[in-house]
Design a protein around this nucleic acid. Structure first.
Lengths: 203, 203
DNA sequence: AAAATAAAAACGAACGTTCGTTCATATTTG
DNA sequence: CAAATATGAACGAACGTTCGTTTTTATTTT
């Protein structure tokens, strides 16, 4: 009986290891996760890991490459539709959030990179991705009339920042008084503030 | 010859340990930093640390409490003046940014918290600080007429998020194409977007 | 001032544990 | 029946912490 994707046995355990390691890294970070924990959760013996990965760090590298959702997210932003800027930004943010929602931990992966590896891979990643997204905001500035005259780089950066800001405050404020007061649709309101600001009157 | 602040010898080494640990944590994170490294950089023997701290984690906790600039920042926000909401937010943000500028590493401290401690220590901090800042935004909602009807918690969270967003993208995008395009007064524009949004027309 | 004394701090070897990795061996797979 | 994979004991290194001891500091007594 072959697997539904006809994976070899080795591929299956390799993915099991990756998945177990990914979840453990999310919980405790890289250095606080042991190979024994990974082996346990992946359901194989300690030594068995080394039939599939030559070191602990190689597992992390594989995760960075495989689990990072930018390949799914990038086309969503590039293809976002909308007659008005509101619709466009809203749809792009919506698509991005729903994709991030499937893998919300990817941001934490970035933080692990920053904290435990000084962001070596992230810089490379950004340098690869940024030139692809930037034109979207440049076009936005040119085409849309009701957009205030911000530099495209600022628009991109604050767009990305909106997600980081949302996610970080989500973690940091969880369990606090602020979190208890937080309305349900709080991300919607983040997008709203990004679009319209907190003030009633325009500048 | 007494020290300029007449500190006891013990206080001096305690601070030396804290400072050495702080810098090492910034470089490698918490778990990848060893007590021996801390002792070396602080210039004392391994065992000596335990005359001042009862565990490695206690050093981290002390750092969170001592190095966190909220003690300097909180009064700046509480005392921010302004006849309009624009002025008020602008002045508060300005004061906060200039204070954060003096200790930019504190954000990395927050990342270590998120990655290696799941925000345990920060929760305590937030629970202490939030009840003090929240009323500022509650009052803002009540008193100022030109404010859109957001929940105070949302206003606070997106206000804080503005800084995280600014600094994270600063770190992540540094050296990239985006950074080269970035205007000088980019933080000013973050505040601007927070206040007025990216659109010309109001909702 | 000087000497005596108790408290604080510094020291570094040693402890028990856990770490990542290796290895000889057994089992499963194609 | 070879090749791939699984096993868990074993290895040396490194970890956080403890301990008995020595040295330094601060205070009190001469």
């Amino acid at each position: 009986m072959p697997t539904k994707e006809t994976l070899k046995k080795g591929e299956v355990t390799r993915l099991a290891i990756e998945d177990a390691a990914f979840r453990l890294f999310m919980e405790h970070g890289f250095h606080a996760t042991s190979m024994r924990q990974i082996a346990d959760r992946a359901g194989l013996a300690l030594g068995g890991i080394y039939n599939h990965f030559s070191s602990k760090e190689e597992i992390f590298t594989a995760i960075i490459m495989d689990k990072h959702p930018y390949k799914q997210i990038l086309p969503l932003i590039l293809n976002a539709k909308g007659d008005t800027v509101e619709e466009l930004i809203h749809n792009a943010a919506q698509a991005m959030v729903s994709e991030l929602g499937k893998q919300p931990d990817f941001l934490k992966l970035m933080f692990i990179e920053i904290v435990e590896f000084n962001g070596e891979h992230v810089n490379l990643l950004v340098r690869e991705v940024a030139p692809k997204i930037l034109p979207v905001f440049e076009k936005l500035v040119k085409v849309r009339k009701n957009l205030r005259p911000f530099h495209p780089a600022i628009l991109l950066r604050s767009f990305l920042g909106m997600f980081f800001s949302y996610y970080i405050t989500e973690i940091l404020l969880s369990g606090s008084v602020v979190a208890k007061l937080m309305p349900r649709n709080s991300f919607e309101q983040f997008v709203d503030i990004y679009l319209h600001g907190i003030l009633k009157e325009p500048a």
